[in-house]
């Protein structure tokens, strides 16, 4: 029903016009918890981007060649979550073996990612919107980059208002939500450029 979207447009759209965090609210929990600190935000951003790209591509293959031919689509939730957990586990082991330095920065974030809604959300969007392989991949990479960008921006802003005088009741999560709200408003400005659903 929708015209076929080329992967490049989709990449752009998933970073700006339909940012997975600011437009679809996915991955909020770790977003709020981690964004206190620039370095951790960067680490988590990279980890989310990598895991998103691998997981969505892998889930696409599993969905297309395993679940649909055997008519087991109703099991898709369980299968997807297993794929995510497996990817995270394998990635953790590989990184630990290949680069201990990277493991030290990313290591603690990897387990968190299994329950990050952004990953599961992107996989489910991929299924619901019937993307083909390249579309899924570019959507995943774009979403990851968008998420990474958003968390870096928020972390930078939180650094700035750390020292400002915030009303007592708004301190902590309250003011963070307001900041995210303004970011989301800024991103709504992009939404006229490409229409992707």
């Amino acid at each position: 029903m929708t015209p076929v979207i080329d992967p490049l447009t989709l990449l752009f759209a998933s970073i700006f016009t339909s940012n997975i965090l600011l437009a679809n609210f996915l991955g909020m929990c770790s977003f709020i918890a981690i964004s206190k600190d620039m370095n951790s935000s960067n680490g988590l951003g990279i980890a989310v981007t990598v895991v998103l790209a691998i997981t969505v591509a892998l889930s696409w293959v599993v969905l297309e060649y395993l679940l649909i031919p055997t008519g087991l689509e109703y099991l898709s939730f369980i299968v997807f979550i297993i794929v995510i957990a497996a990817v995270v586990q394998v990635l953790e082991m590989v990184i630990e073996r290949v680069s201990p330095a990277l493991y030290l920065t990313l290591g603690i974030f990897l387990p968190l990612i299994t329950v990050n809604c952004a990953i599961m959300g992107a996989v489910l969007f991929m299924q619901i919107r019937h993307y083909d392989f390249w579309q899924s991949l570019s959507f995943a990479i774009g979403s990851g980059l968008g998420w990474w960008m958003a968390i870096m921006m928020l972390a930078a802003m939180r650094k700035r208002y750390e020292k400002s005088n915030v009303p007592a009741g708004l301190q902590g999560p309250g003011i963070t939500f307001i900041t995210i709200g303004f970011m989301a408003m800024a991103f709504v400005g992009f939404s006229g450029m490409v229409r992707v659903q």
Binding site: A168, G169, P173, A184
Partner: peptide, 22 residues
């Protein structure tokens, strides 16, 4: 209908409830 309002409303609700609790 759009995303930003949700963030602002959550912030307001948290603000009110936290103030009451304090």
């Amino acid at each position: 209908v759009m995303a930003p309002s949700a963030f602002f409303l959550v912030a307001i609700v948290i603000w009110v409830s936290k103030t009451l609790q304090m």
